[in-house]
Design a protein around this nucleic acid. Structure first.
Lengths: 348, 348
DNA sequence: TGTTAGCACTCGATTCTACCGAGTGCCAAG
DNA sequence: CTTGGCACTCGGTAGAATCGAGTGCTAACA
């Protein structure tokens, strides 16, 4: 319920009958992918009115922008606004027993590093919903350094391995212009530890200005660590079920566009995070502002660790996707993921 | 030339005129995606014969399995065998000036870790060819351990970070059933180093059998490290341009199948490596044995470091792909990649 | 006033037909 | 062995006819 409220950017109430009709149209169109006619609404929705009445209501709904007509003599199709109303007034569904079981099984058996779990979670989500799934793991921009280690690959190549408090590990190669022996590397490693432990990536550190081998190594290693790629602070993206794109969308061109977006992982991250920042759980059609995703709806659910945002799960489908089921799945998985990571910490 | 010889699994020589006709059909069909008729071959290929003659040759080529007829009154289309002959007798092309420039630019500017370079290489390949690209980085199954480090995330959770001689870094979490203090972790870390340095993942190590905290930690950490996922020894796969699948293949079903295969990265690795193991550089249609890739051709080129196989680059397209250009691109990129990594080592 | 039955109308989809033409296979002459 | 000639095949396209789902409007009705 809280969710539903948080998720309503613009849903003026609608006359109850209109609401029922709109809902019927949406449901029907989601199931059939066809324009919906007045008679099928009159039959289906159990409001005891004639098709003619439904028709006049539909005209009105069309004027208000909730429905559209592909051509003069066809049924109606929901607009993005129509879907939005539908979603905002959707009572939250619950996962079917089979799906619940799948989720339970998954989290009971899943093992391995965070990355592996997140990766596998995309499979779970796609299996649950038949939609393309996205899992975003938060960056480690405010994690502190637990330990760094500089090792010699050969005399001119060193590797800086940094371990962060959130369990992430990052490596950077360092190339030196002079030969370095093991003692120098060990000494540099020691100094780097002293310098970097408990700092974050954002912290600026005081590097030695001397020009001996060790000091130079330390300088280069530290700068390698702080040379953050400008576009991201290390979020990870996992995408699962991209083949579903070809099943679920019609029209090669749409498929191509969607795949092209999915290829740009940075874009996907920002897309998901934009939606979360706006407090939404669903972005429909043009709402997310990506031209080439106009045919898509994206459901997102945040994952938190110890109350602070740690990532998100998402489901990407056509605007006529099965919102209730997909939202239930996204929520269940995000909840379990939160518990999986958070709970582990508590128990440990 | 050596390549071409190595790449011929089954290409009995063909009567020169038939060869010319076959080639003309393949070229034409690659360009137009349409069945090719006798007259266009007679006109195009500069053999001074009439369409009628071409026709009779075509009948013969069809009997021998090089060509096929979609239906009675249509032109001919190459079979997999036809493409195979074509490829086996293709004199190696050379990259166009624009592409050469792109490759050069790329390798002049590329920075970062091996993984980043490989990842970005997929973009390069896709940009060069407009096909989906695959880059496989070899596993570190025979790299030796340079250093391991065990750190405390909290009292019950430790992280084992292992650095290998090939520059790869792997982390494993270790969960303990008792609280561990920093001294114990440090001691365990020391012992693990003594135990593991210079071993490979395949080496079995003698772990302490005592039951104190440190020994238990060491045991658990060592077993975490050796618990290799059964299906792989750490190959990395990078896939680029999957949206090209939707451009290049016709038929939603084909697109779906191909994407589904690409999702299973392990499959892609084994596919690429099978082809390389057989000494082939191109697998056409059914040659690679994947039912659902029957409409595909896959071009692969090995990447070596210091003479030993270190991975591969691949290009995936329809059987009617532009072999010469794509092969040239794959070769050029694999060559540059080999130089990029190998050369660096030599200079360093 | 809101609802409904009736009805003419619209227009995409489907079917059918005719037909075009690219391409074939065959044959007889060169 | 090659080639021009020719009858034949058959997918693709265009046009006409038809179908029917669905609409908007209107007049009657509660």
């Amino acid at each position: 319920m809280a969710r539903r409220a948080a998720t309503s950017p613009s849903s003026p109430e609608l006359d109850p009958r209109k609401a029922t009709i709109l809902e019927a149209v949406v449901v029907e169109h989601i199931n059939t992918a066809q324009p919906v006619g007045s008679s099928s609404v009159a039959a289906n929705a159990h409001l005891a009115v004639s098709p003619a009445t439904v028709r006049s209501e539909m005209v009105s709904l069309e004027h208000e922008g909730y429905l559209a007509q592909p051509h003069t003599s066809a049924g109606r199709v929901p607009t993005d606004k129509g879907y939005r109303y539908f979603v905002d007034h959707l009572q939250s569904g619950v996962l079917g027993p089979v799906q619940q079981h799948q989720v339970h099984e998954f989290f009971a058996n899943v093992r391995g590093e965070v990355e592996d779990v997140l990766e596998q979670t995309t499979s779970l989500l796609t299996q649950l919903t038949s939609y393309t799934s996205v899992v975003v793991g938060a960056g480690h921009s405010h994690a502190t350094v637990l330990s760094v280690q500089l090792v010699n690959l050969d005399a001119r190549h060193q590797l800086l391995v940094s371990i962060f408090s959130d369990g992430s590990v990052v490596k950077h190669s360092v190339m030196s212009t002079f030969d370095v022996n093991h003692e120098e590397v060990a000494e540099a490693s020691r100094q780097l530890n002293a310098l970097l432990i408990d700092t974050t990536l954002a912290t600026t550190v005081q590097v030695p200005s001397r020009n001996d081998h060790v000091a130079t190594l330390v300088r280069e290693a530290a700068s390698a660590l702080h040379a953050v790629p400008p576009t991201t602070d290390g979020e990870q993206v996992f995408i699962g079920g991209s083949s579903k794109v070809a099943e679920v969308f019609e029209g090669v061109e749409t498929v191509r566009k969607v795949l092209a977006i999915l290829e740009q992982e940075l874009l996907v991250v920002s897309l998901v995070q934009d939606i979360l920042n706006q407090g939404m759980s669903v972005a429909i059609g043009s709402e997310h502002g990506f031209e080439s995703l106009a045919a898509c709806a994206l459901i997102v659910a945040p994952v938190t660790i110890d109350g602070s945002p740690a990532g998100a799960v998402g489901l990407l489908g056509p605007t006529r996707m099965k919102y209730r089921e997909a939202m239930a799945a996204a929520e269940a998985v995000s909840r379990e993921l939160t518990r999986h990571f958070g709970g582990e910490e508590d128990r440990g």
